[in-house]
Design a protein around this nucleic acid. Structure first.
Length: 763
DNA sequence: GCCT
DNA sequence: CAGTACG
DNA sequence: AGGCCGTTACTG
């Protein structure tokens, strides 16, 4: 038995490392090689030796069905043949991958359906879901009526289809219908168009032109006879035993694929090796030893070409003959077998098990489910991710977080933890390659999609406690109301950034790229949650001072880009973000929140641009009657302008709350919020600037609308400053940028010079 | 091809 | 980068 | 109308 200390429970939940082998090939050991099997293994083995596995739920089956279950496949033989020719046709066309996939699903279902389809109503049974779509249902109807599908009849002997299928499979028949020849539709079409249409022609071409095939194609061609033979379970175990012998004794070797699901024989051998250390190197070392022993006879893929990869993998051909001498009366092992070895560190074991233990469609379904939940799942972990359209309108992954920790603290030791995290019921191995698992995932996805956004699905992220101004503002905001009532104010922030140019363009003028120089985030009330200068690592080649108002001195007092980005993300995450042309800001920040959370005033259907265009300046003047960007820009002012524009059309734009996340994420953030609020409990220094603050209170009392907001804001900011404002120079500090350059600024300067009373007297 |  | 393979 | 698995991985 090979165990990995500290790896925890094996597959199936209790003890044992799955199929573990003794490591040295001897008849005695081999004889006992199944002693270490886990419950899951045993279940699989039993399933294989018993009657044909029950491929579908009992639901909808009667006794007749069960009686027929032994000769599944022939039950719908004629219909199956029709759809197989349709599949062959679409599989030979590289422009039809989706139809091909759909037909592949249909064929898979028909092969395993435990009852005969005799009437259209049969299609309503849950197992027949893929047959019950608009188009396929019509085809089945046609078949039931006329005993054939005309389109299939027309296509089944299509010479092009026949030839291309032959080329893609090197003439190999049977199996799953895909031989893995490394000849796909593109290559096959190319060959076909060059006049190769029959197997003899292909053979002649290959033999006469040594460069005709790529290396992998050559391997699959040379071994096509051997590789198309099934591997008995017994031989799979022997081979696994050999592999286990060339890995450190602390490794766990598991046989995956159809073997693990109990198949009596396999198309190839899939081995999952879990070991510590550099998995890539372990893999290479093992392969080297196996090659030396003449066990490995061909290589298709070898991860030693990719040092530092998360997994080590090798794919190729092997045979036991050199290790197991032929003996009369015993099976000889001269056939070459397709072998896949994948080596993972312990932390990925459960993800790898999920991947290699499930069928293709199940893997795609669960990954799709994860995507819809805001995650991305692979054989190498789970991470937060958002998908959507980028600036160019391409759909894809916009943002991915770091690997997620197992919330149970168990470090993803079991597949069950992955299901649990995704909010899925555990789907057992036997249902991961027969359509049941996929159907369950699809049902879960539908249930999820139709569920209205629950309050606990929404969350609010607190501001960063390290920022003095932010701290004061958070104190006023906390405790935050629940999003159900309060999202329209507390779930919304506005962002604006200022950039300077770095690098040189070809004309040597400078400013080839943007670098973040100032970042500002304001709350719904317009309070500054963050306003900071940012140090620019590279030499600044263009300050764009007429726009930004920034100088080297400003940047020098800033914080690092990383720090600024962290602040911004903490403020933005989980909130609706308002801004003008946010794409620029996010590009420079390298942060891409989900589109549902973005409100870009430059493309708002409710803010129609006037004669002067749709710049923030123009929109502000047109819709708010406020002049901004008079002279240099101020990112606080711009963020506020965008915010007020949003607020002016908020009822139209956002009549209902958006979905802001998932409950798992919400819980983590809620904890963060609570902790942050507790940390805030100690009051920050206040009262340093009370007389000045009162001046703005008075101004606020007799002002209206945005002016009132502005004075309230200045007053709050002054009260929450941890220092006494003494010199006009202090107004240059980032947290006081929110004062602006208007009357508030002038009043403060005057009060600092002449005293508060003098100024109020004049007013 | 199916589904939203 | 397109093509292909893996479950 | 447009997404349909994967920061999969390798080859040429």
């Amino acid at each position: 038995m090979r165990h990995v200390v500290g790896l925890g429970e094996g597959r199936g939940g209790a003890g044992g490392g799955g199929a573990s082998f003794s490591g040295f090939l001897s008849p005695a050991k081999v004889e006992h090689s199944t002693l270490g099997e886990s419950p899951a293994m045993k279940r699989a083995r039993v399933a294989a030796t018993g009657p044909k596995a029950e491929f579908f739920d009992d639901a909808g089956l009667d006794d007749g069905d069960v009686a027929l279950a032994g000769k599944v496949g022939s039950l719908n033989g004629e219909l199956l043949a029709e759809f197989e020719s349709l599949l062959a046709f679409y599989a030979s066309k590289k422009t039809e991958p989706w139809r091909e996939r759909q037909y592949r699903k249909i064929v898979a279902v028909l092969k395993n359906l435990p009852f005969r389809i005799t009437c259209l109503e049969d299609l309503n049974r849950p197992q027949c879901a893929v047959l019950n779509g608009g188009h396929t249902r019509t085809r089945v109807e046609e078949f039931l009526r006329r005993g054939k599908i005309q389109l299939a009849q027309n296509l089944q002997n299509d010479p092009r289809t026949v030839a291309i299928s032959m080329l893609m499979n090197f003439g190999v028949q049977g199996g799953k219908g895909k031989y893995g020849s490394y000849v796909g539709t593109s290559t096959a079409e190319k060959w076909y168009d060059s006049g190769i249409t029959t197997l003899p022609q292909l053979q002649h071409r290959i033999e006469s032109d040594p460069t005709f095939l790529t290396h992998n194609q050559r391997v699959m061609w040379d071994f096509r006879s051997d590789f198309s033979q099934r591997v008995p379970r017994r031989e799979v175990e022997l081979i696994a035993d050999v592999i286990a012998g060339v890995f450190p004794s602390s490794s766990v070797v598991e046989v995956m694929g159809s073997y693990s699901r109990g198949a009596p024989d396999c198309g190839d051998i899939d081995l999952l090796v879990t070991c510590h250390g550099d998995v890539g190197r372990r893999c290479s070392e093992a392969v080297e030893a196996l090659t030396k022993a003449q066990f490995i006879t061909a290589t298709l893929r070898d991860s030693h070409h990719a040092p530092g990869a998360h997994s080590g993998q090798w794919m190729g051909g092997c045979r036991l003959a050199s290790l197991v001498p032929a003996r009369p009366g015993f099976a000889d092992y001269t056939l070459h077998r397709r072998l896949d070895i994948k080596v993972y560190p312990p932390k990925f074991r459960a993800f790898a098990q999920l991947y290699f233990g499930s069928g293709q469609e199940f893997n795609r379904a669960i990954r799709l489910f994860a995507t819809r939940q805001g995650y991305t799942l692979s054989d190498q972990g789970l991470r937060r991710a958002t998908r959507g359209k980028n600036e160019k309108g391409e759909y894809g992954t916009l943002w991915e977080g770091p690997l997620l920790e197992d919330p149970s603290g168990c470090n993803w030791t079991t597949e069950a933890s992955i299901f649990e995290f995704l909010g899925l019921p555990f789907i057992p191995l036997e249902d991961r390659d027969n359509g049941i698992g996929v159907a369950r995932l699809e049902a879960m996805a539908r249930a999820q999609a139709t569920k209205p956004a629950a309050e606990e699905d929404c969350f609010i992220v607190p501001t960063d406690p390290r920022s003095v101004v932010a701290a004061a503002n958070l104190q006023r905001l906390a405790p935050l109301p629940s999003l159900a009532e309060g999202w329209r104010s507390n779930g919304i922030v506005a962002l604006d950034c200022e950039f300077v140019g770095v690098g040189r363009n070809t004309s040597g003028i400078g400013g080839e790229r943007n670098a973040l120089a100032r970042a500002s985030v304001v709350s719904y009330s317009g309070d500054v949650l963050l306003d900071t200068f940012v140090k620019v690592e590279e030499p600044v080649t263009d300050f764009r001072i007429h726009v930004t108002g920034l100088t080297q001195a400003n940047l020098d007092q800033g914080i690092s880009f990383q720090e600024a980005r962290d602040h911004v993300i903490r403020l933005l995450e989980g909130r609706v973000v308002v801004g003008h042309s946010l794409a620029h800001d996010f590009k420079v920040l390298n942060y891409h929140p989900p589109a549902v959370l973005l409100r870009d005033t430059s493309s708002c259907p409710h803010l129609r641009p006037g004669d002067k265009g749709k710049s923030l300046k123009a929109l502000s003047e047109q819709h708010l009657g406020v002049k901004i960007q008079d002279g240099t820009h101020c990112s606080v002012e711009d963020a506020r302008a965008a915010l007020y524009l949003y607020r002016s059309v908020q009822d139209l734009w956002d009549p209902t709350p958006p979905v802001l996340g998932t409950s798992a994420k919400a819980e983590a953030l809620d904890k963060h919020l609570t902790e942050a609020a507790e940390n805030m409990a100690a009051p920050v220094a206040t009262g340093h600037n009370e007389p000045l603050a009162q001046h703005f209170d008075r101004l606020a009392a007799r002002s209206h609308h945005y002016a009132k907001d502005h004075y309230v804001r200045v007053s709050r900011t002054l009260r929450s400053l941890p220092y006494h404002l003494q010199s006009p120079k202090d107004l240059l500090r980032p947290e006081l940028r929110c004062v602006g350059r208007g009357k508030a600024h002038a009043d403060i300067v005057r009060m600092l010079h002449e005293g508060v009373n003098e100024v109020n007297k004049g007013a």
